[in-house]
Design a protein around this nucleic acid. Structure first.
Length: 685
DNA sequence: AGCACGCCGACT
DNA sequence: GTCGGCGTGCTC
């Protein structure tokens, strides 16, 4: 029965597992999911056991496991979920499993891995500790509680513990993990979409959702897009449920505190788990309600290693574990809508759902733009100012204008690497490439015809900002470009009345206090060559529409400035989600775009372009021979290029073939670093 | 990813 | 003479 060898996954960018032997001196039971410490290339790594391995391959010396850690082993649902995360993100299995493994300090080992139970005979010593436990919301049970947890809660020192054990008040036993039994019955997953208008207004809805869960003494997991949302949630929701154990989990916790809460979750000592995307990987079993807020927020997307996002992970998770999942947001995205249309996601019906809004969109069209703001918009801003209302002007581009060109010959600056027009920033008098970030100083005269007059084309935030200041002298106008966390909270302080900005201004905190939104040049959005653009624009418009004026006394207005010839497209964007997405999905289907096809960009980075192309071409050849269609590489087409030292392939496949493509592709590349070329994946689904 | 091994330039 | 730069390759 006792196998000698196990294969272990490690969190390294190599698509392979490594074989280790089980030491003969009995380390404790080892089975799939067990967390082990291994020697690897002269360093120590944490790994996760995948299973027993045959030992016939002796082409290298197999090293023994260094130790079996006293961590709870990953459960089958976690291993399964890790696989799906890996398939979706093209990370290695080890990297995906690493999300579930807490960072662990060897100094915890002497305390960990043991269980404490009270003995009957010495009641005196029990009282203070039982008070501590009661305060922490832990009931004493027959099985005992983890010693690491116990020590942290009761502030025990080693000396005190030995004394208590010797006095016979406590009993300490080894924590034993058993190989989990195969699950037979599978619980059904139910997934819902619910529309909210703003976070603070969704509180009655959250209350209605949580109440029955808490009454049934079931557990809830709430995933929010960032730490500020976690704090807001805690402030507003936990007072509604006194006596209920809310457990916060996010990146601000120290590693010890994280492990402490990991153990609390593992022992089931909580009612409502509230956290950022990191909380998705905690060992929370038997969760009845999974709640996810604002799926489009950036905080849900991981920017490194397994580049997962909360929505997909939670979706996969409930399909494995079962339970209810509720997605709450302002506007459903295309992915959610497609699932609604297929009946996989249902629309939430509740008592506390808010009635649809009655805001109206006003169109202003023009043939040729003479000024940034049309007369209608100018008048609206003036009226709004008169009523002490705040105005937001939403512009598509950063910088002063989209391009700097010659009025005589029409020459304009482009990026030599990326083939796109450089953006002109007038205050700094520099040109930047919006794609690769390259900067240069413009010439005094046109480089082609030496004409003296350069003209700025299109409108960026900076240009709109200046013309607004000219039109409304004496009014404080601010501009905002990137996601500036500092200014986000206090944008409206110091009597600022007009804000000009890119999509960075479309935040709940900013929009709710304004009463007029002017969308600058609607047609400029339609020029961007990105298949997801229409979806993003639709979402941005509706999110803005929803937040606008929610905390303003004055009735709000929403004005879209649009060139007359593009007006026909405008109306579509103000249709309700079901109608708009229906048409958009048809388009996507005929063009073989997500969600009907998964698009995988395989990006090769390396200094040597010869080697880089060879690596990509050989991958392409081998994929094609397995009937997986590949496009590219794109050496010259500036549009797809990411930088000077990279090329890429585009792979398209059906969502049904996710696992197959993962297996084949990772089998081909083996490691994400080959011959000095590093490979990266970007998945759009 | 780390880390070793290895091959070239600037120093006690 | 050596120390250390990082380019290349491998990890059970």
């Amino acid at each position: 029965m006792s196998a000698l060898y196990v294969s272990v996954s490690l969190s390294i960018p190599v698509y392979k597992e490594f074989t280790y032997s089980i030491p003969s001196d009995g380390t404790g039971p080892v089975f799939p999911g067990t967390i082990v410490e291994v020697d690897f290339h002269s360093t120590i790594h944490l790994g996760c056991v995948s299973g027993y391995a045959p030992a016939e391959d002796k082409s290298y010396d197999i090293r023994p496991l260094r130790s079996v850690l006293p961590l709870p082993p990953l459960r089958p649902w976690q291993l399964q979920l890790a696989d799906r995360v890996a398939w979706e993100t093209f990370a290695t299995i080890g990297e995906a499993r690493d999300l579930f493994i807490p960072s662990y300090r060897p100094s915890w080992v002497p305390w960990d891995g043991q269980k404490v139970t009270f003995l009957e005979n010495n009641p005196d010593n029990r009282c203070p500790m039982q008070n501590f436990l009661r305060e922490a919301g832990i009931e004493h049970s027959e099985e005992g509680i983890n010693l690491f947890l116990f020590r942290e809660i009761c502030h025990l020192r080693k000396k005190d513990l030995t004394r208590l054990v010797q006095a016979g008040s406590l009993q300490v036993n080894r924590e034993r993990w058993e190989k989990p039994a195969e699950r037979t019955e599978k619980q059904e997953a139910q997934i819902f979409w619910g529309e909210i208008r703003s976070f603070s207004q969704s509180i009655p809805m959250i209350r209605e959702l949580l109440e029955p869960v808490i009454r049934k003494r079931e557990k809830a997991l709430i995933v929010l897009p960032g730490i500020s949302a976690v704090d807001r949630f805690s402030d507003l929701v936990s007072p509604l449920f006194p006596g209920i154990r809310f457990l916060r989990y996010d990146g601000r916790l120290s590693s010890k505190e994280r492990y402490f809460r990991y153990r609390l979750v593992e022992g089931g000592h909580y009612d409502v788990l509230v956290g950022t995307r990191l909380a998705l990987f905690l060992p929370a079993e038997n969760v009845d309600l999974h709640l996810l807020f604002d799926p489009e927020e950036l905080g849900h997307f991981s920017d490194r290693n397994p580049r997962y996002d909360s929505l997909h992970v939670l979706f996969s998770r409930v399909q494995i574990t079962g339970g209810r999942m509720i997605i709450l947001g302002v506007t459903p995205n295309l992915w959610i809508n497609e699932k609604i249309q297929r009946g996989i996601i249902h629309e939430l019906s509740m008592k506390s759902v808010l009635p649809r809004q009655t805001k109206k969109m006003e169109q202003v069209t023009y043939e040729q733009k003479k000024s940034s703001l049309t007369l209608v918009a100018q008048k609206a801003i003036g009226d709004n100012l008169a009523r002490h209302g705040r105005t937001i002007i939403w512009t598509q581009k950063t910088g002063y204008s989209s391009a700097l060109g010659c009025a005589d010959c029409g020459y304009y600056y482009t990026c030599p690497q990326c083939d796109v027009a450089l953006r002109y920033h007038r205050s700094e008098r520099i040109l930047t490439c919006p794609r690769c970030g390259m900067t240069r100083v413009p010439d005094d005269t046109c480089p082609r015809c030496h004409g003296a007059w350069m003209r700025a084309w299109g409108e960026g935030v900076e240009r709109v900002f200046q013309s607004v200041r000219r039109i409304f002298p004496g009014v404080l106008v601010k501009s905002m470009e990137a996601d500036d966390v500092l200014s986000r909270e206090n944008v409206w302080t110091d009597h600022c009345m007009i804000l000009v900005g890119t999509s960075a201004v479309l935040k709940e905190e900013i929009l709710e206090k304004a009463s007029l939104l002017v969308v600058n040049s609607f047609e400029e959005w339609l020029m961007i060559p990105d298949f997801r653009l229409r979806e993003h624009l639709y979402q941005d418009l509706h999110t803005a529409w929803s937040y606008l004026g929610e905390k303003s006394e004055i009735p709000s207005r929403f004005i879209v400035q649009c060139r007359e010839s593009y007006q026909q497209y405008l109306g579509d964007f103000f249709k309700p989600p079901a109608a708009w997405y229906g048409a958009e999905l048809k388009k996507r289907q005929t063009l073989h775009y997500p969600p009907f096809t998964i698009l995988l960009q395989l990006i090769g980075k390396g200094r040597n372009s010869e080697v880089r192309k060879n690596v990509l071409m050989s991958i392409r050849e081998r994929l094609t021979s397995q009937d997986i269609p590949v496009e590219g590489p794109f050496p010259g087409t500036g549009l797809r290029k990411k930088g000077v030292f990279s090329d890429e392939l585009m792979v398209r496949f059906s969502p049904l073939h996710e696992e197959r493509v993962y297996t084949i592709l990772t089998g081909i590349i083996e490691s994400r670093i080959r011959d000095g070329v590093s490979l990266a994946f970007e998945v759009q689904q």
